[in-house]
Design a protein around this nucleic acid. Structure first.
Length: 419
RNA sequence: GAGCCCAUAGCUCAGUCGGUUAGAGCGCCAGGUUGUGGCCCUGGAGGCCGUGGGUUCAAUUCCCAUUGGGCUCCCCA
């Protein structure tokens, strides 16, 4: 007698009652913060054309080169979206949102997929919320995005975060910098870690990301991109910093912050937390002035961020932040006999229409077992219904917290519970 | 793609230096209270000791593989 059991795929988990309440609370807090910042929600499909992601995110990135879930049906190439910005850019172009005028202020929240080896704070199906402000090149837009992102964490009560800030400049600045880095690391190549040595020719900026111990002293004296910014990029970045100061949003300059995806230009930022372990980024983002054009639109400047909800959960747990607990019903109907159960079934809709949360026993168990269940479910009141109660229209309403009982008529139940 | 650790009841974990019927706490079900929860007492259900193979008279225990999980590197949210 073999029983086949099924499990979730590697790196994908169920969210169960008991933990889902915290998710729901965080989600409503995100929605509420978005509302105040006047960002509007956008929902795009979880699947996109593979080519969109390849172009938008960048062929050479790890995401595209080895972490995508893809499959083909006939001529169509599907990919489970690994991130949110390219799909939003696609939606912006496809739906002609530019024609609505002004800047588009969009936010999203939902599942994403990457075929990585799971570890703490990294799942194969994970969840992000993020925002995109499309159609403005102003430093004010950068700061609005950062303000929105940090506001969410402040609302939640996560205060021990660090906002790391850098600018990766415009394409010309980046080219100049890349050459300078190459010139700097070339003579040191045999002292570099193997991984970094391989990046020397392909993408020297990634060497700055290295966590290898042997690379750290070499990194320290490396040229900084902020010394290679064009006049315009420098001004933009200076303005961003000045505005952040004015808003009292603290930040820390990190000249080695080079974000992984190809589409970033100018401002780059990352919000890190000491409570996350190895994967210490709560979220990150930056400006991506080239992406909209890359996916087929008119040249359009844009800036955005994305944050991991699982990592937010980890931070909340570490800090003991609980936004919501499971809640019990207002009334639990304890019944004796079929007749009483039917009476309860018919009574509940009326009470629910009054906004009361009602439930009952469905198994015809002993009174004691039902009371125990009511207690376990943290019911505020139990209403006990037997033959005598039905005949006399007098029911026992038990306050489960105060352990007091009252005799009430059918019509009085709602009033007494709501009192 | 690479490395390290782990795997016994629903959960958290003991245990067997290889040897009869594998344990605890919590949880679950029931009784003590034939119409009353939380505390207490009593009883019960629930494990082919992750899976497959090897060594052995004998494996949950030792060995190998595999699967799943955790952590780390890479990279990212």
């Amino acid at each position: 007698m073999s029983k086949t059991t099924f499990t979730t795929h590697h790196g994908m988990t169920d969210l169960l009652p008991g933990e889902i309440e915290q998710w729901q609370a965080l989600e409503s807090l995100i929605h509420e913060t978005a509302r105040r910042y006047h960002f509007q929600e956008i929902r795009t499909p979880v699947m996109e054309q593979t080519e969109l992601i390849a172009r938008g995110v960048g062929q050479l990135t790890d995401i595209v080169s080895k972490e995508m879930f893809t499959f083909d049906r006939g001529e169509d190439h599907y990919v489970l979206r690994p991130e949110g910005t390219a799909p939003v850019a696609r939606a912006y172009v496809q739906n002609h949102l530019a024609q609505r005028g002004g800047t588009q202020r969009l936010y999203y929240i939902g599942p994403f997929f990457r075929a990585e080896r799971p570890q703490k704070g990294r799942q194969r199906q994970f969840h992000q919320f993020g925002a995109e402000l499309i159609g403005s090149s102003s430093a004010i837009a950068d700061v609005e995005i950062i303000a929105f992102m940090t506001a969410v964490y402040r609302q939640i009560g996560i205060k021990n975060t660090t906002l790391k800030l850098n600018s990766v400049g415009d394409p010309a600045s980046r080219d100049a910098y890349r050459n300078a880095l190459h010139d700097y690391f070339r003579p040191l190549s045999d002292k570099l870690s193997e991984i970094s040595r391989n990046r020397l020719d392909t993408n020297p900026m990634r060497i700055l990301d290295s966590k290898e111990d042997q690379d750290q002293p070499l990194k320290a004296d490396a040229p900084k991109i902020t010394d290679y910014l064009s006049e315009k990029s420098r001004e933009h970045f200076d303005t961003v910093k000045e505005l952040l100061d004015r808003l009292d949003i603290p930040y820390e300059m990190d000249p080695f912050l080079v974000r992984g995806l190809d589409y970033y230009t100018e401002t780059a930022f990352e919000l890190v937390s000491p409570d996350l372990g190895s994967q210490d980024a709560l979220g990150g983002g930056g400006r991506y002035d080239l992406l909209i054009e890359e996916v087929g639109g008119q040249p359009t400047p844009a800036v955005g961020f994305a944050c991991g909800i699982e990592r937010l959960m980890i931070a909340c747990e570490a800090l003991g932040i609980t936004l919501a607990h499971p809640t019990g019903p207002d009334i639990y109907f304890v019944t004796r006999g079929e007749e009483a159960a039917r009476w309860a079934l018919e009574k509940m809709p009326e009470l629910r229409n009054c906004g009361l949360v009602c439930t009952m026993d469905y198994s015809g168990r002993s009174l004691k077992a039902q009371m125990k269940d009511a207690n376990r479910q943290q019911a505020r009141f139990a209403v006990i219904i037997g033959e005598q109660e039905l005949q006399e229209n007098l029911f026992t309403l038990r306050d489960m917290v105060k352990s007091e009982e009252y005799q009430v008529t059918s019509d009085d139940i709602a009033d007494r519970v709501q009192a």
